[in-house]
Design a protein around this nucleic acid. Structure first.
Lengths: 349, 349
DNA sequence: CTGTTAGCGCATTCAC
DNA sequence: GTGAATGCGCTAACAG
């Protein structure tokens, strides 16, 4: 029952014209008679012809496959799922299809899927590199002239465009927001100073305080595990200070949730009695504490930007040789409106 | 800088052999001398040759593109994200790549992406149909001999394999679980009797009761909106009965969460004072109430099964003409261990 | 074991 | 406007 694919020749014969005429019709060329065009399109529909992009692409000898690759390290994380949706949106409307693969943080798997994608002739690649990705992993790809953009994490030494969140700017925005609300004793809670992300966020916090003319107090910087439990721990310690803070910027959302837990344990209502802002790294589901202000990067927006950047490079023909960093700005988002996010998710029926 | 792709001829010349020899090497044919093989592979690596699957596939004229398509209606829903991961796993290890597209419940978009995938010569398709998908949408695809398997929802009238959750069996399992725990006044809360899903689950509930020799009481069937608020409403009404239930099977997880809310409002601890089981449709995030028993289908497992089913059909060459229903069994999962699911999700650093 | 020949389905010159 | 050739990168038959 495995029917062979209908080809141009067959529809040419059926329509009583030549193959090239059919080809012209397929490309909407104006050099073809209206009558013949109608005839041809009719036959095409009738015989159920489908365009063979592979063959077409082969003939044009330039890699114009109209397919882009997207490789993420953890699709299970809703951040990346949304990123993929964003990419898919712009990619789809540009007439491309997307290869999507999941590496599960394995550089080996990543190498495999990337070569596989190359064999299929992708015209561009968006990658959220697995931990431990080396520049050499992307080297042959970019050497062959295929545009690559890295998201979320960048690859040291690789000459690719990178799209990352502006942690520094986001932290500054958060602090400025709190200052505008009248706070001047603002703690920085959670995380350990051993990651680049921590440094960026902490530096933004420090810079914003300085700009606001507030002196930074070491006592208000309280490190902890970047988890919910860590957050509880951090706020507990903060509230034992003689001169308590009135607000806190948390290293990430898990910490922020923990901080809220800790506050409630002390009969304080987060948002009312004590302001808390967390970076939204999508570690914790939002629905549990809807009344939390977060600093976040919109994953779909990031995906769209990445795709646009990639398409621009594809169309330019000349991928950027230099690594450019186009950062997605984090924004302070007041989410106290208790968005009923859960309501719109369902799979049944 | 857009380097042309290296071809077999070039590496043939460089290695001082003919193209077919190279071809044989590429296919790991045993008909080639060890020495020449070594020479050829060396040159291949040196020149950075990449296999052109498009051309190969063209020559073999049979659709053996080694790519499968996956179209989901809402990748934003973690259920589908996990499904995609499951599909990707088996597809990857079978040497395939996956086209992934997102329809956002739009049948039009779905038609577009499917044709696009067809043009690229997919050798199989897994689809979670958008609401409103007609059999005619899949007709041309299956007519061309490309295996299709539908997941989660099936398409009425389309002769495709479908993979759906066993709502009936899941409900029975849940009730049996409760009966084993000693309950005999078990309510069925939430949902409206206007969907197929409701009917299936309700029927499973009824059948299990009968099997356990418990007479079904109309009063214990309390419909409501399939939402958290609906759950609160339902349990409130249930607890006003003269003869109160001691356990409840909820139409979905949102309802279950609402039921828990309602119980707490009455100073009852879910799981301890009153047993509640919910179908896990991933409507509500789990982290909020970790101590809830759910009946759920593992999305990754479902994805894997779908992919396996598809690959089997692809390899058989003869896609099933008849629609077969291979159901994924829902299982009762005791999650009172307070799984710290949030901890393992992070994107930073 | 290795080289030669002939297409796969399509788009692109060129003639007509 | 339309038809006849040619080649994209590769594999499948055969010949050597």
């Amino acid at each position: 029952m495995n029917k062979k694919r209908v080809t141009v020749v067959e529809i040419a014969q059926a329509a009583g014209v030549s193959k090239s005429t059919v080809s012209l019709v397929l490309q909407n060329s104006p050099l073809v008679n209206e009558a013949t065009r109608a005839k041809v399109t009719a036959v095409i529909r009738e015989l159920g012809y489908v365009y063979n992009r592979g063959a077409a692409n082969l003939r044009q000898s330039g890699s114009n496959s109209k397919i882009i690759g997207l490789v993420v390290n953890d699709l299970t994380n809703s951040f990346f799922a949304e990123l993929a949706v964003g990419v898919d949106m712009v990619v789809q409307s540009a007439g491309y299809v997307q290869f999507l693969s999941h590496t599960g943080e394995s550089p080996d798997r990543q190498r495999e899927v990337i070569t596989s994608m190359r064999e299929h002739g992708i015209s561009g690649l968006i990658v959220s590199p697995a931990r431990g990705t080396q520049a050499i992993d992307l080297k042959p790809l970019i050497a062959s002239g295929i545009p690559v953009v890295a998201t979320v994490r960048n690859v040291a030494g690789a000459k690719v465009s990178s799209l990352m969140s502006d942690n520094h700017g986001g932290a500054m925005a958060a602090v400025e927001h709190l200052v505008a609300l009248g706070h001047h004793r603002i703690a920085f809670l959670g995380g350990f100073a051993d990651t680049g992300v921590f440094t960026e966020r902490y530096q933004g916090y420090a810079d914003a305080l300085q700009r606001a003319g507030i002196v930074l107090e070491e006592a208000l910087i309280i490190g902890s595990a970047p988890s919910r439990a860590g957050g509880v721990d951090a706020i507990m310690r903060a509230m034992q200070l003689a001169d308590k803070p009135t607000a806190a910027l948390c290293f990430n959302d898990a910490v922020a949730f923990g901080v809220c837990d800790g506050l409630r344990a002390q009969r304080l209502e987060p948002g009312a009695d004590f302001a808390v802002i967390g970076f939204d790294d999508v570690i914790e589901a939002k629905s549990a504490v809807p009344a939390l202000t977060t600093v976040s990067v919109d994953p779909q927006g990031m995906g769209q930007k990445a795709a646009q950047l990639l398409l621009k490079q594809i169309n330019a023909g000349q991928p950027e040789a230099e690594a450019i960093v186009s950062s997605v700005r984090l924004v302070v988002r007041e989410s106290c409106g208790a968005t009923k996010q859960g309501e719109q998710r369902r799979i049944t029926g």
